[in-house]
Nucleic acid binder design. Structure first.
Lengths: 346, 346
DNA sequence: GTGAAAGCGCTAACAT
DNA sequence: ATGTTAGCGCTTTCAC
């Protein structure tokens, strides 16, 4: 019954439909000149033979793979999982294939870039991962556009899409001040990442502008994920530790959750009654009943669509070497008031 | 400085290195006959030209793409995110590329299969997604192996790797009984999925064997994810609702978390003092301080490695049509005692 | 509108 | 060990 169709090619279909091989190709190419009658005949023959066009051959000749490489770091942060999902959905909806790579948070994506280049992808999306100058120029030489997502690389002219990390953090800083906090801690993320850096900077700025002395802000390495942030808070403020401040800002939600749990279950403190907490990202988990975290919501969908748009536009034109956008694209984020840091204006 | 290497082919390298084009090919193929001196010369020329072999052309001729398709459903369940990560890591470590597809929980993977076939992948991994008989036979006709992960399709002879869902659920059922529970609820997942079905069945069996009447077990549609399970518990047992049973078993961890939060924050109950709860999967989130859920841990890594092993072995031999494994591979899962259901034997 | 012919960049015999 | 040759399955001029 089944056609044992292991190697059905357009030639086989052509033979059965009594047309030329090129007509078969046309039948599977939208908008090519072919009579309806012939197309129908070809399609039927194809169905009978279980023919599926070999896109590898098509890629070779058209030099377009219709494939985007998605390089993801830090998969332990639900935010990037959400980003990954959104990218997959968006690219898939646009008819593109996605080659996904994960890189260890520490390691560089350069070896992955090599594999990506061999695969003739139409574009590269880089999320929460490092990249060297060398790699970017290799891609540029081949005309493969790269877009950085929520990360930029100083001194490398690569387009980046991100949200206003510094501005968002500053807003949160002011929110703490408005709520009456006078002593602070900030839980930092990846020391090499621009995202954490910018949020720290924004928060510091808010305090500095309000005349808060630098000594009123303690900076804690949070390790970017739940477990490490939990441990950092427990160890920093545990028995014989430092005095716990009024307000704690974690540069991402998952660390804020770790901090809250450590405060409650290890240190016996109440949030927000004893300590106020805010995060950044707007992951759904942080809005659940036990947390109801006040946070800055990143517009994932808009950011993803912007990113994909840049890639697709670039890939559309053959010899468009200079990416039209020279500087980063920065989208606004929006505060989501939860219970852990009340809206003083409300 | 950069070589404007948009279209450097093996011919260009051959010319520069003063060798034949096939020697260039050999230089990039491990274990092919080529003098060290020549190989070095070729590699150097390649570097100067920024040459990267075009794997598309190689795929076309070798008919092996070195690529695995990973089809994932239900990305809202952290368990499958963990699975996704593990697969990506494992396949990447094995030098394979991964084409990732997400399918909406409701929809079938059949359209995705079509795209996958066009891409000449070496194998397909299907996780938490539906698949029709038609699609599987299409793949089989082309000699593309499919492995189902944590899901099987009755009446379709496709290899599946999963854990002992029924057995694990039965163990949890006995744990509830040993802890003294006498009335029960089970929060069910995807009605179409075998995973939920088997766990429900296993739990029922445990009660039945202990002589518990069917009336002592209430079955609740939990919708597979946190939010829907939260709402289901809130609505079922809220004001004017049913009496809350002693023990609640959610067929996955994320629904157990939703149930616990609903019990605590919507219904004002204590877990485990008032109600005992258990889940299934062993996701890290469920072991965090607010939950400390008792659950069955699925051996993700072993399951993933087994799955990949099946695929790679199959793909290794050219004409190996009959998959060597005819029946499913079932791995053991292990109970993780948390706080929500105490170990009566301890 | 349709067919014939020429490759895309590579691998794999086959010679030497 | 190395070069020559013949394609892999498709798209795309180019004639007709």
């Amino acid at each position: 019954m089944s056609a044992r169709s292991s190697r059905v090619t357009s030639r086989d279909v052509a033979r059965l439909a009594r047309v030329s091989q090129s007509s078969v190709s046309r039948a599977f190419t939208a908008g090519s000149a072919l009579s309806d009658e012939k197309r129908a005949r070809i399609l039927e023959a194809a169905k009978r033979l279980n023919y599926v066009p070999n896109s590898i051959a098509s890629m070779l000749i058209t030099r377009r793979s219709n494939t985007i490489a998605l390089i993801v770091g830090n998969t332990d942060n639900p935010f990037y999982i959400g980003v990954l999902k959104e990218f997959l959905a968006e690219l898939q909806a646009g008819g593109r294939q996605v080659l996904t790579f994960v890189v260890d948070p520490g390691s560089s994506s350069d070896d992955v870039i090599m594999r990506v280049l061999q695969h003739q992808v139409d574009g590269i999306i880089l999320t929460a991962a490092q990249l060297s100058t060398q790699s970017t120029s290799l891609c540029r030489d081949r005309g493969i556009p790269i877009v950085l997502f929520n990360r930029y690389i100083p001194r490398i002219e690569t387009v980046a899409v991100r949200c206003d990390n510094a501005g968002g953090a500053e807003t949160l800083g002011r929110a703490f001040l408005a709520a009456g906090a006078t002593s602070f801690a900030i839980i930092k993320g990846d020391p090499l990442g621009t995202t954490s850096h910018d949020r720290v900077q924004g928060f510091r700025d808010a305090l500095w502008r309000a005349g808060i002395p630098a000594t009123a802000l303690m900076e804690i390495e949070g390790g970017s994920v739940y477990d490490t942030a939990f441990a950092a808070i427990r160890d920093t403020y545990g028995v014989g530790g430092e005095a716990i401040p009024d307000g704690i800002f974690a540069v991402n939600d998952v660390m804020a959750m770790g901090a809250i749990d450590a405060l409650r279950f290890e240190l016996g403190r109440r949030v927000p009654e004893d300590i106020m907490v805010a995060g950044f990202d707007g992951i759904p988990e942080a809005s659940r009943a036990p947390y109801r975290l006040t946070t800055m919501v990143q517009p994932i969908q808009a950011m993803v669509q912007t990113t994909v748009g840049l890639l697709i536009d670039d890939a559309g034109e053959e010899g468009s070497d200079p990416p039209k956008i020279e500087s980063d694209i920065i989208l606004d984020c929006k505060i989501l008031w939860g219970a852990t840091l009340p809206d003083a204006a409300a």
